[in-house]
Computed example of a mutant assay.
Amino acid sequence: MTPFGTNLVAMVTPMHPDGTLSEPGLAGLVDHLLATGCDGLVVGGTTGESPTLTDAEAAGLVRDVAARSAGRARVIAGIGTYDTVTSVRRAREAEAAGADALLLVCPYYSRPTQAGIIAHCAAVADATPLPVMLYDVPARTGVALEVPTLIELAGHPRIQAVKDAKGDLFEAMTVMSRTSLAYYCGIDELNLPYLAAGAAGVVSVVGNAFADRNAALIDAVLRGDLESARAIQGSLLPLAEAIMRTSQGAIMAKAALAELGIIPSPAVRSPLLESPLSHVQRLREALAPPVLAA
């Protein structure tokens, strides 16, 4: 067991139609995730629309989720920005708000060198006593965490995990074989192969709606029951396609949660836009109960 859990969900940030944060929606979502086997709540990450959150909102979300979950799941705060000073401040604010761990994305837009990335990550990790999960998502950041960088950062005592949204399984296995970093699959479509290759768990967007199926998938892999694991992953693929490939994960995850009655509104903040009816219809088809093999 890692300080982050195994069945993590990249939580959406429930909002009212006017764009303000929804406290009832947040409470209902946390209760749903705890009831469906989620043991790690990632707050204020990409799926939580972090670029649109103020510092006060980000800290307040961590505080509210920590209070609502009351120790029943780890609270991992997304605190990464493209500015080291801001990221350090957000890390300290997350610690004060009750976070159990930090999620640190590679600095985006500015495209720093690998040496700059190492300095940035070390500065944030030095700022609090909390364990840190690096977030490698070059499709969004414009720059990847290279293997030598990951190996060097693994030497920091508080940098303990990687959320891998790069999708290079060979590279992930290479880093796992050469470090003690716990890997988490950050691509719902690839959860099974990452788990089979030794990942410690998942950080799932689809898990907003179906953390229980992810829990069953993780358990099946741990038991060595790959036949059941393949069946479970197969039941999740239509959901992964509808949520992650129709338009954008945060948009579609909120649409799914609203369709299921877990949050009251699928509202997102601009520049994101709510799903059109054609996307919602695809989602409804994917949400139909699956028929699993016995």
Score class of each variant (00 low, 15 high):
P193D: 05
R140L: 10
Y183A: 08
G155I: 11
P238S: 12
R213M: 12
G198P: 10
A240Y: 12
N214E: 01
A209Q: 03
A215T: 15
P157V: 10
R213T: 12
L134Q: 00
A144C: 13
G186T: 10
A197W: 07
V175T: 04
A199Y: 02
R178T: 07
E227Q: 13
A242F: 00
D225G: 01
L169V: 07
F210Q: 14
V206A: 03
A197N: 09
C185K: 02
D212M: 08
L150I: 05
L190C: 11
G155S: 05
G167M: 07
D164L: 03
K163P: 12
K163I: 15
L153G: 07
A209C: 13
L195K: 00
K163D: 10
E152Q: 09
A199N: 00
A220D: 02
N208I: 05
A161W: 00
V221T: 10
D164W: 02
P138W: 08
D188Q: 06
V221C: 12
E227L: 12
V137L: 13
A196V: 15
S204D: 04
Y194Q: 04
V162Y: 06
L222T: 15
L226F: 15
A220T: 06
P157W: 15
P157N: 13
E152D: 06
I243Y: 04
L192T: 04
M133V: 02
A229L: 13
Y194G: 04
V137C: 01
P148I: 09
K163R: 12
D168A: 15
E241G: 12
T149G: 02
L237S: 13
G207K: 05
K166N: 10
V203L: 05
S177R: 15
L222C: 13
Q160A: 15
I243C: 00
F210W: 15
Y135N: 05
A216R: 04
S235D: 11
V162P: 02
L134P: 01
H156A: 12
I159M: 10
A161Q: 08
R140M: 08
E152V: 04
P148H: 01
L145E: 01
M133C: 07
L226A: 12
L195Q: 03
R223G: 07
I218N: 03
V202R: 02
A144K: 06
G198L: 09
P157R: 13
I159T: 03
L190W: 06
N191T: 15
L134R: 01
P238K: 13
L239C: 07
F210M: 14
A216D: 05
I187T: 07
Y184V: 02
A199W: 05
P138D: 12
L150H: 01
G186Y: 04
D136V: 06
R213L: 11
T141L: 08
S228I: 00
A154F: 11
R223T: 13
E152R: 09
A209V: 06
L181P: 00
L226E: 14
R223Q: 14
R178K: 10
Q160K: 15
L153T: 02
N214D: 14
E241C: 14
L153F: 05
D164I: 03
A200E: 03
L237Q: 14
V202Q: 01
N191H: 13
S204F: 11
G224T: 04
R140D: 10
G201E: 02
E227N: 08
V147S: 05
K166A: 06
